[in-house]
Design a protein around this nucleic acid. Structure first.
Lengths: 197, 197
DNA sequence: GTCTATACTCGGATAGAC
DNA sequence: GTCTATCCGAGTATAGAC
């Protein structure tokens, strides 16, 4: 479940990805050294280059892998919903649940966009926009069908995504609220904000 | 308006702050070098240390200055509003307008929290929480007075702040919508999300 | 207060033995 | 594929002249 179909399966490569993801999330890409990553994996720094040509490639792979999995997971999940009302609630719940389960990848994919070289940025940004478009489509259909009422569909979609993704900034495992309760709160706020509840 | 009251006024110091702010926003703190900052200001790298003891001090000052000004601006603005309904709409409009006018400072203050050394982090995080508390108080009062209905006041406040701050991620000067139109959209969504419209 | 020059450390990446 | 060893550029910060 962890890698895009064409690439080779190497346990060390996957360990490197995991270590890099954790360090990028905690320290930031620019502040993380290849030596730190090697230490975390338990290999010598030079060994990393048997699996990734550059540090930038490592970042790109980590981010692209996350976006691919996110999109694939939503494409799967979205088939459960037919009307915009259920679709929106489904999206909210999916987004929160999925993101809370992978806070490192989410955080890195958001914070490290500016550390991507131009070509890599376009690739990742395209995936991010595609995902955003999934929500925008739901909102647009709801507006067309009269279930929702918003002044501006693209802005509403961006506002909602920002609100939902914000959960990752404060959620802590074992906190006051369960994921399910959090989903409920956000689902209600999201639907209301579109004039649908 | 730019500096805390006790400190000395030096044009070069202010130029350094401005250059650092721009570079931290564009490249990130860790990816920005003192040499770059010096280049941008038009002085030699060593000269920076006549004004700031370390790079970390520069970050702390930039972030603390922004938070201080943000809080002071809201304390001033908030006196205009008496009831929770007007207060919430006022907060939304203020937050968006203020943030869109200082996107660099906002971006840095959000993204570079993890690059603050522990003591500096506590200082800045305290100010951020104080500001968040301003919104939470408005929501709480509205719930108490029956103007709003939310399942969880702290979560609602955090969700709203995330939604509002998200504007900075997509807004571009001269875009399709004016700041005023954007304020209108978000104000309506925010009020609705609390069951108040 | 700024300059030139530099100390010292650490960064990404590579070479070649095993 | 991993190791040891290293190249070389760039990083923060300092010293001392002006």
């Amino acid at each position: 479940m962890a890698r895009k179909s064409g690439s080779v399966g190497s346990e060390t490569a996957e360990n490197i990805r995991q270590a890099a993801l954790g360090l990028f999330a905690r320290e930031g890409y620019a502040a993380t050294s290849m030596r730190q990553i090697a230490d975390a994996v338990g290999v010598q720094p030079g060994a990393l280059y048997n699996h990734f040509a550059t540090k930038q490639d490592l970042l790109r792979e980590v981010m692209a892998g996350h976006m691919q999995q996110l999109i694939a997971a939503w494409e799967e999940e979205s088939r459960k919903f037919s009307d915009p009302f259920a679709g929106l609630e489904g999206f909210v719940r999916f987004h929160i649940r999925y993101h809370l389960g992978r806070s490192d990848a989410v955080f890195v994919s958001y914070m490290e966009l500016r550390n991507l070289e131009p070509e890599n940025f376009r690739q990742i940004e395209g995936m991010r926009k595609y995902y955003e478009g999934c929500l925008r489509k739901i909102v647009a259909e709801g507006v067309k069908g009269g279930q929702f009422s918003v002044a501006d569909v693209p802005v509403a979609a961006m506002a909602l995504i920002a609100m939902l993704t914000g959960v990752t900034a404060w959620y802590r495992t074992g906190g006051r609220l369960s994921v399910d309760e959090i989903e409920n709160i956000y689902a209600k706020m999201a639907l209301r904000s579109l004039g649908a509840a």
